[in-house]
Amino acid sequence: MGGRTTRQRKSVLSALAGCQDFVSAQELHALLVADAQSIGLTTVYRALRDLAAEGGVDVVRDEAGGRLYRRRPADGHRHYLICRACGSSRPVDSEVVEQWADRIAADTGFARVEHTVELTGLCTDCHTTEDREGVPPCRWEPEHQDSPDRARSCAS
């Protein structure tokens, strides 16, 4: 991966490696600060922007249009199915999407074609909860923002 290897960038990469699911820059910053890392939110944003440009992280949008980040696996680009309620994610077989994008590029003569495919739904746990209570649990409930369970998908 290109770019300068700074202490802050290493910290961001390390924190991302501990996250199983997509996280926002703010959530990642909170994890770093909770781990006694001295790093500014702007620095986290800059590191994530650079990592995304280099292909080191996958980026998706949440329902409000904000960016969420996940470290890209060594075997490259993937697509994910993301739970709208709890934020859990799982990679999905997307070979047909890759073939379609390649065919469109070849048919049109375009080069370096990029694409974004975002699949969202409710995971089994959240779908079951919604059926029982009528409303899916919300990942972003303000009263839980400072709770250690807030970033349950990330290693502390």
Results as ranks from 00 to 15, higher is better:
54 E>M: 12
83 C>I: 02
6 T>D: 02
94 S>Q: 08
83 C>Q: 04
86 C>H: 02
79 H>F: 11
14 S>G: 10
42 T>H: 01
35 D>T: 05
53 A>P: 03
72 R>P: 03
54 E>W: 11
20 Q>S: 13
35 D>S: 15
103 R>I: 09
24 S>C: 12
32 L>G: 06
96 V>P: 01
43 T>K: 00
40 G>C: 02
20 Q>R: 15
99 Q>M: 12
44 V>L: 02
5 T>I: 14
86 C>Y: 04
64 A>Y: 06
82 I>R: 15
50 D>F: 00
7 R>L: 12
67 R>N: 13
97 V>Y: 14
70 R>D: 02
83 C>E: 07
69 Y>N: 03
65 G>P: 03
33 V>P: 04
50 D>I: 00
91 P>Q: 12
94 S>M: 10
20 Q>A: 14
23 V>I: 13
9 R>H: 07
67 R>F: 07
40 G>R: 08
72 R>V: 08
12 V>D: 01
43 T>Q: 04
95 E>R: 14
25 A>W: 00
96 V>C: 01
39 I>R: 11
71 R>T: 08
102 D>L: 09
7 R>H: 10
34 A>K: 13
85 A>G: 07
74 A>R: 06
94 S>P: 04
93 D>I: 02
76 G>W: 00
67 R>L: 14
5 T>K: 13
90 R>T: 15
81 L>H: 05
38 S>M: 11
68 L>M: 05
95 E>G: 14
61 R>P: 01
48 L>D: 06
29 H>P: 03
87 G>F: 10
25 A>M: 03
10 K>W: 11
36 A>L: 03
34 A>R: 15
100 W>A: 14
14 S>P: 00
96 V>W: 05
34 A>V: 02
16 L>E: 01
94 S>A: 15
102 D>N: 12
70 R>P: 01
15 A>N: 00
103 R>T: 13
49 R>A: 13
66 G>R: 10
36 A>F: 10
75 D>F: 12
40 G>Q: 12
21 D>N: 14
46 R>W: 00
71 R>D: 04
11 S>W: 02
77 H>A: 02
98 E>F: 07
68 L>Q: 08
27 E>K: 11
41 L>T: 00
43 T>P: 00
79 H>V: 04
